[in-house]
Amino acid sequence: MKSPPDLHVPREWHEAAQRLERDNIRTVGVIGRTDSGKSMLTGFLFTSAIQTGRDVALIDTDLGQKMIGPPACVTMSDAQGLALAFVGSTDPVLGWKPLLEGTQRLFSRTDATIKIINTSGLLSGPGRRLKAAKLQVIQPDLLIVLGNAPDLEPIIGERPDIPVLHLPSSPHARRKTDGERRAGRRQAFHRYFEDAAVLSLDPALLLETPPAISPDRRLLVGLRNGLGNDLGLGLLGGAGDNEAIEVLTPVRQAAIQGIVPGMLALDEAYSETRLKAEGRGWPGARSLL
């Protein structure tokens, strides 16, 4: 989570880290345009808080370009380790409902004295409404706006109760192409499933009927324990009405008490195909990414 040794950290970032400690900030949200350096800043604040002895949690709500954990999830790193909330999509608009629910679930789950929340760079249209909904969930003590983001001014104006700190973008931030983003997700999925095993599971564990997909792909699923907490991801293979289903996953079989179908199908190279989001997305949503 530490910044690269050669990263030039703007003076204003150091001042922001000092403010978090001085003012005893408990919840800070980081927002800004795509590729403005939000992950760099969030990682810097996270590391700085640890170095001052604070118990800190980093919650990553960016579904596609992850700082921690696998794509298609809200993820959290705190003193207890890595936790995740399955969304099932890398598109925040199509995964609107489980994204907000997962953020709330992880936010409530940690006892950290400071929570730092990273967000995606989707700001226009429904993305702006999603930012407002996230602020309603996390209720930050401080909102950090990174770089020039005029699209966020209406949201900021609607929440005069939240202090706002404007910081410059990282000089090392650069614009990624769509191909680079897709490649990053493929690599992240590959790392996650690298040591996975194929489990034979009872189809009665499926909490929803999975959509039909082509035989050369597997459906991304979330795996839950008996308390309803997400344990990790799986790739669902074939299934019959009364037959066992095959799931490729690093999660221990004994812990799995529920399977939630996602909205992505992955091929052998972990390239993704997006599926319909029945009742999970922003009303009338279509993919904007």
Rank of each mutant, 00 (worst) to 15 (best):
D141V: 01
D141P: 00
L143I: 00
L143E: 00
L143R: 01
I144V: 15
V145H: 00
N148E: 14
E153I: 06
E153R: 14
P154E: 07
P154S: 13
I155W: 05
R159I: 02
R159H: 15
R159D: 02
D161W: 01
I162W: 12
I162S: 08
P163W: 06
P163L: 10
V164A: 13
V164H: 14
L165W: 11
L165E: 09
L167R: 04
P168G: 06
P168R: 10
S169Q: 15
S169Y: 00
S170Y: 05
H172K: 14
H172F: 11
H172Q: 12
A173K: 06
A173Q: 09
R175D: 06
R175L: 15
K176L: 14
K176T: 11
K176E: 14
K176H: 14
T177W: 04
D178G: 04
D178P: 04
R181Q: 12
R182S: 09
A183T: 03
G184L: 08
R185M: 00
R185S: 04
R186G: 02
R186S: 09
R186Y: 02
R186M: 09
Q187E: 15
A188R: 09
A188W: 01
F189Y: 15
F189M: 05
R191V: 05
Y192H: 11
F193K: 06
F193C: 09
F193M: 14
E194R: 08
D195G: 01
A197Y: 08
S200T: 11
S200L: 11
L201Q: 06
L201F: 03
D202L: 02
D202M: 03
P203C: 08
P203A: 11
A204H: 10
A204K: 10
L206D: 05
E208Y: 13
T209M: 05
P210H: 12
P211Y: 04
P211N: 01
A212Q: 13
I213D: 12
S214G: 03
S214H: 07
P215E: 12
R218Q: 11
R218V: 03
L219N: 02
G222K: 01
R224M: 03
N225E: 12
G226Q: 13
G226M: 02
L227K: 15
G228T: 05
N229H: 14
N229Q: 15
N229C: 09
D230P: 08
L231Q: 07
L231S: 13
G232P: 06
L233T: 10
L233C: 07
L233H: 02
G234C: 08
L235N: 06
L235V: 11
L236E: 03
G237T: 05
G237P: 07
G238N: 07
A239Y: 11
G240V: 08
G240Y: 10
D241S: 12
E243C: 02
A244G: 13
A244K: 11
I245M: 15
E246K: 13
L248P: 00
T249V: 10
P250A: 05
P250C: 03
P250T: 00
V251T: 13
V251K: 08
V251D: 01
V251C: 00
R252L: 05
R252P: 00
R252K: 09
R252Q: 11
Q253S: 12
Q253G: 04
Q253C: 04
I259H: 02
I259E: 02
V260Q: 15
V260K: 07
V260F: 09
P261V: 01
G262D: 10
G262L: 09
M263S: 10
M263P: 02
L264V: 10
